[in-house]
């Protein structure tokens, strides 16, 4: 997985939970993980997809009429085997019910679209965050975009799930001001079950990124734990991660409460419904923070972190 040129499935602005200041987010399509609680399931496949938002559909039948492959029997019923992803149906659809997920864009195009936000990003001490999906699957492309942004004085952060080839990441880290590193399930077997892969590489990558920071060869690394009731909020899981964070040398973590704003996206993509999960209450958030604290790890709410100064001030290019 990981073609050199990724698809982008969204740009979002005025975000305040994904790094310091006000940020614009670039969503890369393609992810090696399959976390059962994922709220961005459209990021999983690296290839473009067609989504169907039933609530917007007015059943006009344009998609059925226009499909050259006759792959659509009736609105919303598309035969994926026949579909060649020509997106004729998406163009024909008047309401936006048929939607294309993932567009190829050049780094210049991405930066041009972000540019109107630059004054706000600069003034607020914010920047751009690459997220997804897993942007680290596309280190060359991400590096190109980051270089363009930095040449205009915009700091760049990477949000990663940690499963990537560390050897390919190097030119990118030199362009980054911050890495937000998602940690999820500590136990390897459980991780395989809940997130679809082993987590040895993830732990190794965390360790080596922090090591690089310490050597002045990489940006600060900031761990983040999505708090998913019944999945990541167990005391054992939190204690184990706390131990590793202590050991690695990042005695802080952002606890991100699970939300289900993206649950509906599964239906858009024709995926089976995910597990029925709760949003953690304030009490559960406080309990998790308390548990981390008892292990010597300072826990933060998203958007309230004390990021190191170099994460906000457009750090000079690292020695690498």
């Amino acid at each position: 997985m990981g073609s050199p040129e990724p698809l982008i499935f969204s740009l979002q602005h005025f975000c305040v939970h994904d790094g310091p200041g006000i940020r614009s987010l670039v969503f890369f399509k393609g992810c090696p993980l399959r976390c059962v609680w994922c709220q961005n399931v459209e990021s999983w496949k690296a290839e473009a997809e067609i989504g169907f938002k039933a609530h917007l559909c007015i059943a006009c039948g344009r998609c059925v009429e226009r499909c050259p492959e006759r792959a659509i029997a009736s609105p919303g019923r598309r035969d994926a085997n026949r579909c060649r992803l020509c997106f004729t149906c998406v163009e024909a659809c008047p309401s936006g019910a048929m939607t294309r997920v993932g567009v190829r864009r050049t780094p210049e195009e991405i930066v041009a679209e972000l540019r109107p936000e630059f004054p706000l990003l600069r003034d607020s001490g914010g920047g751009v965050t690459f997220t997804g999906g897993e942007p680290a699957l596309f280190p060359e492309f991400a590096t190109d975009v980051a270089r363009l942004l930095r040449s205009e004085g915009i700091p760049v952060a990477l949000e990663t799930g940690g499963l990537f080839n560390p050897e390919r990441l190097n030119p990118l880290t030199a362009e980054l001001q911050l890495i937000l590193f998602d940690i999820k399930v500590f136990d390897g077997e459980q991780h395989r079950l809940l997130c679809g892969s082993e987590n040895m590489v993830i732990k190794e990558n965390l360790r080596s990124l922090v090591q690089a920071t310490r050597l002045g060869q990489g940006p600060p690394v900031w761990p983040r734990l999505p708090l998913v009731p019944g999945m990541t909020d167990g005391p054992a899981n939190i204690r184990s991660w706390a131990g590793l964070l202590r050991d690695v040398g990042t005695p802080f973590v952002t606890v991100v409460p699970y939300h289900h704003m993206g649950t509906v996206k599964r239906a858009w993509l024709g995926l089976p419904a995910g597990p029925d999960l709760r949003v953690p209450g304030d009490g559960e958030m406080a309990a998790a923070a308390g548990l981390f604290a008892s292990e010597g790890i300072r826990a933060y709410h998203p958007g309230e972190e004390d990021f190191p100064a170099e994460a906000t001030t457009g750090r000079a290019s690292a020695s690498g």
Partner: peptide, 12 residues
């Protein structure tokens, strides 16, 4: 909400 939201609105 909170100081983050406050700062964000001021900047906005």
């Amino acid at each position: 909400q909170g100081p983050t939201g406050r700062r964000a609105l001021v900047h906005l």
